[in-house]
């Protein structure tokens, strides 16, 4: 299905990568290439993590409007981070090895996601409006508690939190790159192994059960994978609410009614083009200081509203 479209997307991505690595370079290539290469790797990791987690979540909830970000996964990650610093103290937290910090965050996020979203998904699967409302309330709650905790801690500790609370594509935490890549690799391998099961799960609870799948167990597996992937993207570039929705909606347009074996790579390619191409154009060509996340959330928000209105008029 659609091999030429995927090849076309890959070609566009190659051009974007070449532009990102070479445009506006001043100074020795020996410095520029590794410096930009690390950022490029981080952007590619995000481009793998965000659409994959979005597709998995949308398949398991059988809708195309909700995404992990809209349901408050990113906000939950920031809340857990803030709470850790609040409890341990900024100095203690920073003294932990980077890997320790990350693994602690990821573990807690997985647990919280299973408790909060596991119960919600098993009860309200059919009720999309209830899911949207719950997601919005979760998001507001997580952000409010995060804000409260941030006001309680002292300014030095706040600085540690702040770095992780906002989307940033210009300044990327490259020291997390290795551990993030390992975690993302494991999660992506599991997601890819699920691709045929996801095709069946998309048919709905009853039909999937009839074909021998176990939607309940698959939901929990997907939540763990999503939690891992959200951790990776949030740790690297911060929360971006509408990125997943934007790129997965586009992927559905480019490869309509495709199996997950096609949809997943398609969404990843589109996300990589959006991030790397967008960053190249904004930073190198237009020399704008507007962060890419603002543009993405503006476009993605418009898509979200469009999908909601379309869903209501049906």
């Amino acid at each position: 299905m659609y091999p030429r479209r995927l090849i076309g997307l890959a070609a566009v991505l190659a051009i974007c990568v070449a532009g990102y690595m070479t445009l506006g370079a001043q100074g020795s290539w020996g410095f520029v290439l590794p410096f930009r290469g690390a950022k490029l790797a981080a952007l590619l990791l995000v481009a793998l993590a965000v659409p994959t987690s979005t597709v998995l979540f949308q398949t398991i909830t059988q809708n195309r409007i909700l995404t992990p970000s809209i349901m408050g996964f990113d906000a939950l990650y920031v809340l857990i981070l803030t709470a850790l610093i609040f409890v341990l103290g900024g100095q203690e937290y920073v003294r932990l090895p980077v890997i320790g910090q990350f693994v602690l965050n990821v573990g807690l996020l997985m647990g919280a996601a299973l408790v909060l979203f596991g119960t919600l998904l098993s009860q309200a699967r059919q009720d999309i409006m209830r899911m949207i409302l719950t997601g919005i309330i979760f998001g507001v709650l997580f952000r409010a508690v995060t804000g409260f905790l941030q006001r309680m801690i002292d300014p030095n500790e706040y600085a540690v939190v702040q770095v992780n609370s906002y989307a940033r594509f210009g300044r990327i935490e490259t020291d997390l790159l290795l551990i993030a890549a390992v975690l993302a690799g494991i999660a992506l391998a599991f997601a890819w192994r699920m691709r045929h099961r996801l095709d069946v799960l998309e048919l709905g609870h009853d039909t999937a059960t009839n074909l021998g799948e176990t939607p309940q167990r698959a939901t929990l597996q997907v939540l763990v994978i999503v939690a891992a992937l959200v951790s990776v993207s949030t740790a690297l570039v911060g929360p971006i609410v509408f990125l997943g929705l934007l790129v997965v909606s586009l992927a559905h347009q480019v490869t309509p009614a495709a199996r997950h074996a096609v949809l997943l790579p398609c969404a990843v390619l589109i996300c990589a083009i959006t991030l790397i191409g967008g960053q190249t154009v904004l930073e190198r060509v237009l020399a704008l200081s507007t962060p890419l996340s603002v543009v993405i959330d503006l476009l993605g928000g418009a898509v979200f509203l469009g999908l909601l209105l379309k869903g209501m008029s049906r």
Partner: peptide, 14 residues
Amino acid sequence: ARKLAILPQSADAA
């Protein structure tokens, strides 16, 4: 699933 198949009441997904 290899022994018994069911057509549920609302099988309108996909």
